[in-house]
Design a protein around this nucleic acid. Structure first.
Lengths: 242, 242
DNA sequence: GCAAATCGTTGATCTGGATCAATGCGTCCC
DNA sequence: GGGACGCATTGATCCAGATCAACGATTTGC
């Protein structure tokens, strides 16, 4: 179901990786990149296909090199909570337990590196700098998770959408610089499941934000922020730059 | 405001620490405990007093050795989201940013060790095992945070209380063993701010759980779980043992 | 070119939990 | 002993967002 590109096919994949400067892999010195490449398998996942299943044995870590995926948890009756969207440079599978704590599904064609758990652990022993980077990454995600708890527990629908739009406007821009115009690759349903709302409420709230002149749409998925300050005010002051 | 006990007062505080086996400090070998103790300051915080303020410069890490605290974030208008309760053995302040991402306030008399950020960093370089333990801790908290997002985004009030009661029943019991009877040190207001509900809803929902014979109260803060299986069912299947 | 999906918007109605309000119950302190 | 304060419970009412329902727009496949 998931296309595996033998890593022998590409020579020196890590050395030429576009995503390296964005990811934890930059903790591995150039001369050692071969060792990293030796345990990595490049995987392509088509849009709509899942590549991590909650509850399954966690055999591997992943590092996204292109595309976007959603991470989510399900309740027995099918209610879904998306816990995050991940794109280029994002490291996946930190959970120490022996089973995955969430599922992951590509929402755009996705390319990522797959590292068998045991082998990466061994590698980490040799590159303490990479372990340090992982701790940094985990700490940042923890901060973002707390911010999301505040959103889910205490913000109104309008405030949630404002927060989400601002987060998306920073997505991919490395230094936290906010773009005024950007494409959201996820559906309204995904946004709803991320914000703890329904599709209808997301749609209605976006419509109202537009009629209130805070945002505009270039297309269904391309947003223009027309009033960044008003949107930030709405989002609840300084949303953490996580 | 916060009582500081000079570490010179207690001799060999880390070697005799009750909380050591529960915390990341157990990654430091016995013979090196002196170095750990040298940078730690023991602090006592009375109930109701805060010792970390969101937005303030993050100068220190903390390790709880006794008592309980709540961690929370505020919106400008005062709405509060409690992101977690921490007790003996819990490590605080992982956020890499230079300011704290949350506030912390004791809900029971609290004792903890304070480590200046810079000095602990240096120490971590010498004890990679401790860094590994921190990564483990962070990964576990991330899993718990995702579980909480599912709760806040998608569970009903009744399901939230069921999940919370089960979590509390495991609190402090190291191997995830659930106690049938336990004391909850936090107020209804704290529970409400943790579950994204109001005080009234928490109170009503607990009353209903009792009249439905799922739980009982020995006192206002002491709970007895009379039907663990029904409660687990309600909570949404296997709540992660984080 | 035209079903058949899929996704998004909009309207009407309903409801779980919020809000507003009153009362009970310890416990602390004169 | 008795206010007074903080915490919890309970009742009455309200409303933001869910649910139910219809329809429009875009894409997919034949």
């Amino acid at each position: 179901m998931v296309a595996k590109l033998a890593h022998s096919a590409a020579r020196d994949p890590c050395a030429t990786c576009d995503a390296r400067h964005l990811s934890v892999c930059n903790a591995v010195p150039d001369v050692e990149l071969g060792r990293l490449a030796a345990i990595a398998t490049v995987i392509d996942v088509p849009a709509g296909q899942s590549f991590i299943d909650e509850g399954e044995p966690a055999r591997a870590f992943f590092n996204v090199t292109a595309g976007t995926a959603k991470l989510f948890k399900l309740l027995p009756d099918g209610r879904r909570q998306i816990t995050g969207f991940v794109s280029t440079g994002h490291f996946l599978g930190l959970a120490v337990s022996d089973t995955y704590a969430f599922s992951a599904e590509a929402i755009e064609p996705l390319r990522c590196c797959r590292f068998p758990r045991a082998r990466l652990r061994t590698l980490l022993d040799d590159f303490p700098l990479m372990e340090k980077r992982l701790l940094e990454v985990a700490a940042n995600e923890l901060v973002a998770a707390q911010e999301q708890m505040l959103l889910l527990g205490r913000k109104t629908a309008r405030e949630r959408l404002a927060s989400f739009l601002l987060l998306q406007s920073r997505q991919g821009a490395p230094c936290g610089e906010a773009r005024r115009r950007f494409v959201m690759p996820m559906t309204r349903g995904d946004i709803a499941d991320y914000l703890g709302l329904t599709i209808e409420t997301v749609s209605r709230t976006l419509t109202r934000l537009r009629s209130d002149q805070l945002i505009d749409f270039a297309s269904q998925s391309e947003v223009v922020i027309t009033s960044p300050t008003a949107l930030e005010q709405l989002a609840g002051g300084l949303t953490s730059i996580a």
